[in-house]
Design a protein around this nucleic acid. Structure first.
Lengths: 199, 199
DNA sequence: AATACTTTTGACCAACTGGTTAAACTAATT
DNA sequence: AATTAGTTTAACCAGTTGGTCAAAAGTATT
């Protein structure tokens, strides 16, 4: 059953993610949901509240993957490979969400971001410990765990948020070639990282 | 001498980059420039034209570095190190511009982006050839040049556009620690990449 | 079928937004 | 000092925007 509230959220996601908070018009969300603008305000009293709901949803889609992958109980190389595979797949299915999140989170004030993330359950300590342990064991080269984590995530995310630029600069604006590039990247990124840290 | 036109451009840069195109009000630019709103329209007839000028400026700040570094005539390891040093320095001086560019370029239609970049003179062929040559020579491991280029740029850019997130997740919201992290990163990123490709 | 509650609608509004215009001011030229 | 051209301002405007409200339509309960 497709309730009105669900139709609204789906429509709001589409429009907010595509156009950003400031670029979005309540009327456009109403149109996308096939309803009246008043009804929108009936369910979500203000634009701010509706945006909050969408942002929360978007973020909560990407947080669990981070938590689960980083805290799973497998060896470090498998963990990195798994994370990259799952994360790139996830972004592929929701290619505009990362930029949406980054963009809006850069506009919010710091306390909002802090509270929001703390409630998301993201915790990298287990993974950090694992990295340090592998360095001690001599399985991987000495590397700062924070830098490694940023590298892994950045290498997954950047090709998507930079797509319009990269596609033109590197692929002569050929979209098929770029999509193909993104598919191969799962393998390439994993290889790139493991090559860098493996002893 | 500080002409009105210059004051406007400086003010417009600040506001547009901070709030995005849709989030920017002409009145706010006028206030920031210490002038009347009518005077704004006297120099730049429309918001669109003023935004265009600012966007062009922002982009042209980051394009030359790409061109010069990639086409310089030094060995591949030095080139990578130089690029990372210069690019991270450049972003550090203008930390909000990359997200601004990525964000707006994802909203524009493809033809605009294509034309814009083509006129910017960015060309990676020389660097691509150099990578392939070093692979043949056996200096570096086999790697797809496009993937390597995306990796280099992504590793430089991502920590800045993800700052509010990363700072909370990895550094318990301690800004000093994060700034320190960014400083060290020049060395870390270069090391990370070279470790990955060096034979 | 009358009551009461929720959902949906259209008409409406105050505040805001990008943009215009005519007049006032300034400084160089005659 | 009068003319001219460029610069700056205040007042104004039409269209848009988020949001309200009372009434209508629908649904469940008695």
């Amino acid at each position: 059953m497709e309730t009105t509230e669900l139709k609204i959220i789906e429509a709001a996601k589409k429009v907010f993610v595509r156009k950003g908070k400031d670029g979005t018009r309540m009327q456009e969300i109403a149109d996308e949901a096939g309803i009246n603008k008043s009804l929108l305000h009936y369910y979500y009293r203000t634009k701010e509240k509706l945006f909050g709901a969408v942002f929360k949803f978007a973020f909560s889609k990407f947080a669990p993957e981070l938590v689960n992958s980083f805290n799973s109980d497998v060896d470090i190389f498998t963990k990195i490979e798994n994370f990259i595979n799952n994360y790139i797949d996830l972004i592929n299915k929701n290619p505009f969400i990362p930029l949406f999140i980054l963009n809006e989170i850069n506009k919010k004030d710091a306390s909002f971001v802090t509270n929001f993330i703390k409630s998301s359950g993201i915790n990298v300590n287990q993974f950090r410990n694992q990295i340090n342990l592998e360095i001690e064991k001599g399985t991987i080269k000495k590397i700062d765990p924070n830098n490694l984590i940023v590298n892994i995530i950045g290498l997954c995310v950047f090709p998507f948020i930079g797509k319009p630029l990269i596609q033109v600069i590197l692929f002569d604006d050929n979209e098929n070639e770029y999509d193909n590039f993104l598919l191969n990247r799962k393998k390439e990124v994993a290889e790139f990282i493991i090559n860098s840290i493996k002893k």
